[in-house]
């Protein structure tokens, strides 16, 4: 059975690009257009990994990860932050929020899949 990965990004094209890479590797993909939309979709469904942008309207990625970690069902779901931000301050914020990895856009699909395979829940 394929593993489920949620992609949270306000850019539809970026969601599409990430989705192509993940689906090509055999994962099922759930898409959300911002942090608020993503929280609404954390409805108890099994997620093996979350990939989230940082800068988004309505709710940014850091706030979303903090909120997701408060939910018992997603407390241990690994999170990869995928963003154009490369500053150490932002990375530290992501780590403090509970993210497991920080990937800077534009990403190489192979590198992304490496990170995903390392972190995805069994």
């Amino acid at each position: 059975m394929a593993k489920n990965i949620m992609i949270v990004d306000d850019s539809a094209s970026l969601r599409q690009v990430v989705g192509i890479a993940l689906r090509g590797a055999g994962y099922d993909v759930v898409e959300a257009c911002d942090g608020k939309d993503a929280l609404n979709k954390l409805d108890g469904r099994k997620l093996h990994l979350i990939i989230s942008d940082v800068n988004m309207p309505n709710m940014d990625g850091i706030s979303f990860v903090k909120a997701a970690k408060q939910l018992p069902a997603y407390k241990f779901t690994p999170v990869i932050m995928l963003t154009t931000e490369a500053g150490n301050d932002m990375k530290q914020q992501g780590q403090a929020a509970g993210a497991k990895a920080w990937v800077v856009k534009p990403f190489q699909p192979a590198q992304m899949l490496t990170a995903v395979s390392k972190l995805v829940l069994p």
Binding site: S11, L14, V17, I20, A21, K105, P106, F107
Partner: peptide
């Protein structure tokens, strides 16, 4: 195609 998909990520930067 993979390279093109990487290049298409410019749109995210453009949007920002």
């Amino acid at each position: 195609v993979t390279d093109i998909l990487v290049a298409l990520q410019f749109q995210d930067r453009v949007s920002q």
